[in-house]
Design a binder for these strands. Sequence first.
DNA 1: GCCAACGTTGGC
DNA 2: GCCAACGTTGGC
Length: 135
Amino acid sequence: MNYFLVKSEPFKYSWDQFNEDGQTFWDGVRNYQARNNMKAMKKGDLVLFYHSNEGKEVVGMAKVVKEFYQDPTTDDEKWVVVDLAPVQSFERPVTLEAIKADKMLEDVALVRQGRLSVMPLKQAEFDRIVEMGNS
DNA sequence: GCCAACGTTGGC
DNA sequence: GCCAACGTTGGC
C-alpha cells in the first residue's frame, strides 16, 4: 500500500465537486515528476486531497480506483490520469501552517517542494495528517 | 549537452 | 498582485 497527496485549486476542482461526482479522473498533470508519481499509484492506494491557493489545507482522503491510463483530454501520450474516489472528509481540515509546524511532517514534499502537484507520502506522514484531520 | 531566458505555480 | 522557486524550452 502506498500513500500520496494531490493538489487541486478549489476554483478548478474542489473537494465538494469531487464528492458530488463520486469519482473523477485526475487530469491536467503536466509535470514529469508528478506524472511519475501517478504512475506509481496502485488500485486501493490512499490519497490525500489538498486545496492549494484557497484554503491551503488538506480537506479529505480519497483512494485510487483505477490505475494510470492515457489522459483522455490530450492526444499526447506522455500524459496519464488515474481515477480517484472520495473516502472521507476530514472533520477538521489540516492547514499548511499546521503541517509546517509539525515536526513529523517537516520533510513532506508539500513543504519542501511547493510546486509539485502529486507527491508520495510515507505511511507515518499520511497517518499523522489523517490523525490531525480527524481529531 | 549546457545554460540563459522564460513561463507557471503557489504562498504570502 | 507580487515574487520566489523551479521546471521547461530553445539557442548555441
